[in-house]
Design a protein around this nucleic acid. Sequence first.
DNA 1: TATTGTTATACTCTATAACTATA
DNA 2: TATAGTTATAGAGTATAACAATA
Lengths: 171, 171
Amino acid sequence: MESEGRTGTGGAADGGSRGRSGKADGSAEIDYGELPSYIGYLLRRAQATIFRDFERALGDIGLTPGAFGILMLIRANPGITQMDLANAFGIDKSTLTPVLNRLEAGGLVRREQLAHDRRYNALFFEEARKDFFEHARKRVRQFEQSVADRLAPDEQAELVRLIGKLQAAQS
Amino acid sequence: MESEGRTGTGGAADGGSRGRSGKADGSAEIDYGELPSYIGYLLRRAQATIFRDFERALGDIGLTPGAFGILMLIRANPGITQMDLANAFGIDKSTLTPVLNRLEAGGLVRREQLAHDRRYNALFFEEARKDFFEHARKRVRQFEQSVADRLAPDEQAELVRLIGKLQAAQS
DNA sequence: TATTGTTATACTCTATAACTATA
DNA sequence: TATAGTTATAGAGTATAACAATA
């Protein structure tokens, strides 16, 4: 149940006979222990990989995956307030502010203080940038498709279901 | 294919009749559009949720999920070099350095410059902290179990398989 | 020249706490 | 008092580029 392998070492600096013990030459066989069975680890690796791919494929449009998602939500929900958007996206309001600042600076989004309760900012996608957005979305879709294509259609559905189930039990 | 809903707005600040259009009251029904079908988005949400849970459940042991994973790898692979560890964990060597600094400062890990090639640092778990580590690992296991228990055994296996498949096609 | 590891730097993501303004 | 949003701050995580030591 432990699968620790060569533990209990406490080892000295080793004088050369063991040397790098096959680990410093790139072709190493590393003992991952139970790590790959940890769902948190798996998700971190998967997410890092896909985010790197995203950046490589779409870095030139100047939107991070997060910023793009937020932009999509604003466009689909014109007039949404910052609090609702933060909640919907699963981040804190203070995390949202700088993202919106960048989107607004880039002319993609506009804040409008509500007249009847000036504490709220209603958010709107700038229709003047529609062409840019549609182009970006098309490329994001292609990217997502290329990721999804690694799985069969029923596997895609199953993955979505399993990830949802993983979070459903949460507080 | 668009499912944009109420787009084409370009909307004015709205004078009150639409008001917050059911979006500023928390009970909002938000249009997520195609976002939930994006695997990158799903993974980000899932990972964020589980990392938050991890911190809440295990924050008192003073190890982040990443630091704990690295510690596990060092313990399972005594003498591993920093480059090999970074590659195994999927991060850059410069990202690893501060993590190791913290682990070493906490007395959990020791660097030993190899005698026959002093460019390399061999890494060792400090056996003196074995009790602490075993305690931490037990709790991490419990936590991982509580996450895994949200899925049936066959679902767990399937999730691992699907996530693996998602990354397999990568460069 | 090439490689390991460190440092300098930068950026994103994330949060908490304190603040402003509004109600 | 309570809420929306901003700001100040902090920390993890990530990377690239330049550097020192070593080979």
